[in-house]
Simulated assay, not measured.
Amino acid sequence: MKLLLIYPNWLGRSGDYCHVAAKQLGHESSLMWGSDHEVLTIAGFLKDKARRLPFIASTYRKLEAFILNKRIIEKVRLYSPDIVINNCPSLFSETIQEIKANSQCLVFWAGDNPELYPSLINTLHIYDYFFAGAPDWISDEIQFLLKNRAYYLPYGCSVDVFNKSTLPADSSKRYGAPLSFVGARYSDREIMLSKLLDFELAIWGWKRDNVLRRVYQFVRGRQRNPIDDRYGIGSYTYTPKLNSAIRGSYTNNITANMIYNASSIVLNLQHPQMITAVNSKTFEIAASGAFQLFYHTGDMLGLYDKDTEIVCFDTIDDLRDKIRFYLKYPDERRTIADRAYRRTLSEHTFAHRLRKMFDVIGG
């Protein structure tokens, strides 16, 4: 089959992983970025800043959206794919109609709660199938719009990127810590991590607090983000006492894998929209062979066995007790991490997810 994948260009790189998995399954695949959030290059950094400054952000984003949608239409007309998998919630209605007219099957695979994006809800009826990264995102309205063709399908991991690695001594020292966290900075995470500084905590993915950053935040103003607004997590304070724990800002997944391999315990702090589901990081940490403590309040949805494959916590006191226990008993850590590792490789790669998707749609 010919697949066209449309993904946002962000640090998670799930578009890359689906693209590789599709080829591994013997399909022809083409990947397009439906939005551009690459920040690890100079050009990407400048684009990112342009989107955020209030006096140019609106005009810049409209121009960027117009160019991206135009490119997608040109691509789908030329490529004529059998299946299109879209992960961008803000494509124009005209673009989605054009994709539909030039393909055999149009799929949306949601990595965020679709209710956060009115433009997506307004165009879901155009799609043939909808797959959600969390089961509670599939509302009665969505099932009605999709004529009962909405399904739960979590993301997975790429074992080409996340895997067990033997690091040189200098890399182990650089990336290792008794307790590590890799992820975006949100106010709820600041509160939790500020209570763990006595455990030699290492934080990756954050910028240190300083006067220049405070001035920039003041000039930029409050950023409107539907996810942050919905869950109340966007008003980070840049707590100075966390500076000592911050090891690096932008962290790609190659580096993240080294961090996981070099750390005794990896914290997996769920985003509030995923608190009853299982996020991609769960699979990625497990695929690296690392032991994780997972902030999770629901069951594991049949993906892992709770506490024997993935150890969960739901309060800061529970977390602190488990950190102390598992730092003291490394053999127990390794046994649990190894079970999660084997389960992940046998059930939770992106190739597994695409097979499941194609079974559902008959591809």
Rank of each mutant, 00 (worst) to 15 (best):
R247M: 15
R247C: 13
R247Q: 14
G248V: 02
G248E: 09
G248C: 05
S249Q: 13
N252S: 03
N253G: 04
I254H: 01
I254Y: 03
T255Y: 08
A256H: 05
A256I: 01
A256R: 05
I259W: 14
Y260M: 02
N261E: 12
I265D: 01
I265K: 00
L267E: 10
L269Q: 11
Q270V: 12
Q273C: 08
Q273F: 08
T276Q: 12
A277C: 04
A277I: 08
V278L: 09
V278H: 02
N279K: 03
S280V: 06
S280D: 04
S280Y: 06
T282M: 06
T282Y: 04
T282A: 13
E284A: 00
I285V: 15
A287E: 07
S288C: 02
S288G: 06
G289V: 11
G289F: 12
G289K: 05
G289E: 05
A290F: 08
A290K: 05
A290L: 06
F291A: 00
F291D: 00
F291I: 02
Q292D: 05
L293Y: 02
L293E: 01
F294H: 04
F294Y: 15
Y295S: 12
T297A: 04
T297Q: 06
T297W: 02
M300E: 05
L301I: 09
G302H: 00
G302Y: 01
L303W: 03
D305I: 14
D305C: 05
D307M: 11
I310V: 15
V311C: 02
V311E: 00
V311K: 01
C312I: 12
F313P: 09
F313N: 07
T315L: 04
T315G: 00
T315I: 01
D317G: 09
D317V: 10
R320E: 13
D321V: 13
D321R: 15
K322M: 13
K322D: 09
K322C: 11
I323N: 06
I323Q: 10
I323D: 07
R324F: 12
Y326V: 00
L327Y: 08
K328G: 09
K328H: 14
Y329H: 08
Y329R: 03
P330N: 04
P330H: 04
D331K: 12
D331E: 13
D331P: 04
R334D: 11
I336G: 00
A337F: 10
D338Q: 10
D338C: 05
